[in-house]
Nucleic acid binder design. Structure first.
Length: 288
DNA sequence: TATCCGACCTGTTGGC
DNA sequence: TGCCAACAGGTCGGAT
């Protein structure tokens, strides 16, 4: 499923294939795909048609394209199964095609939003006045992601110390740090030898620094692998990127030997999800 | 105010 | 072979 590195691959694809093009028509095939656009599908199509799209931007797992003069933007979230594909109009419709955007040019491609589980979607929003990136107002509350040069490591550490929560919950809290999902949280915690239930208030500054280092490391490795499987026509990885099979050290490895110490990895149910960890390298906190 | 947790959604997998 | 339950998980909003 799309995580931050995959979303960045999509952003690069949009930059290459969609930026600068003018919308000729919009077709909404499933209303849920624009549920974050309260004015509805007709309004969504009307507002976009005739507008020129700018350079794709990203924060965490959110993507957006500036619209017209730049005080509005189309916001996209891929959810768990969303894809943004650049396709020739003659290509057969995908089974889960939700939105189609045609362009007023002769490049011979259209943009398609395809989403099996409909957790993702597109919507149109005003941008934060004066924001240099044209950040859509509805995502102004989310934190910068760890690959953003403006991410503030010291402020992140201070926020962790203030919170009465545990480290994995904090990693998934987008108001603290964006772009980290269940998979990369488990990977970074394994690399840092931290148990997911460790209270954030007990983290020292060096431990937080180490955690951030490993988050960035695993994301950059994934981004590099995602780039290699990138087909220039499609603006999305296909979900079967070889990265996950080859390089995951924790996620999905229940009962397999820890790549560091050989101990059988464990899976614990956690917040209606799973946490994978090494019981030897990642000791639970005493209170847990 | 901060934190927690269920609901949303559908294809796949595994058990009976 | 067919049916059903469990599972995957990012985000939102209601509950505590």
């Amino acid at each position: 499923m799309p995580e931050l590195p995959e979303v960045e691959v999509v952003r690069r694809g949009l930059e290459r294939w969609v930026g600068g093009r003018t919308v000729a028509a919009v077709e909404v095939l499933h209303p849920r795909a624009i549920r974050r656009h309260p004015a509805g599908p007709v309004d969504f199509a009307a507002q976009l048609t005739g507008q020129r799209l700018g350079t794709a931007r990203r924060r965490g797992k959110y993507l957006w394209l500036p619209v017209g003069e730049g005080n509005r933007a189309v916001l996209a979230h891929l959810g768990m199964s969303g894809q943004l594909l650049v396709q020739p109009p003659a290509a057969p419709d995908e089974k889960h095609l939700r939105i189609r955007i045609r362009f007023a040019d002769t490049e011979g491609t259209e943009l398609r939003f395809v989403d099996q589980r409909t957790f993702g979607g597109l919507s149109l929003h005003d941008t934060v006045p004066g924001d240099p990136d044209g950040l859509p107002d509805v995502i102004a509350h989310i934190a910068r992601d760890p690959l953003d040069p403006a991410f503030d490591d010291a402020a992140f550490h201070a926020a962790l110390r203030r919170r009465r929560t545990t480290v994995k919950r904090a990693l998934l809290d987008q108001s603290l740090i964006s772009g980290v999902g269940n998979i990369y949280a488990d990977e970074a915690l394994w690399r840092t030898r931290l148990h997911y239930d460790r209270p954030t208030a007990t983290l020292t500054r060096p431990r937080t620094a180490e955690l951030l280092l490993h988050i960035r490391e695993v994301m950059n490795e994934a981004l590099a692998a995602g780039g290699t499987s990138f087909d220039s026509l499609y603006v999305n990885v296909n979900g079967q990127s070889g990265y996950f099979d080859r390089s995951l050290d924790a996620y999905g490895r229940e009962d397999e030997p820890c790549r560091r110490c050989g101990t059988a990895m464990r899976r614990h149910p956690w917040m209606n999800r799973s946490s994978y960890f090494c019981p030897r390298c990642q000791r639970p906190p005493r209170a847990a």
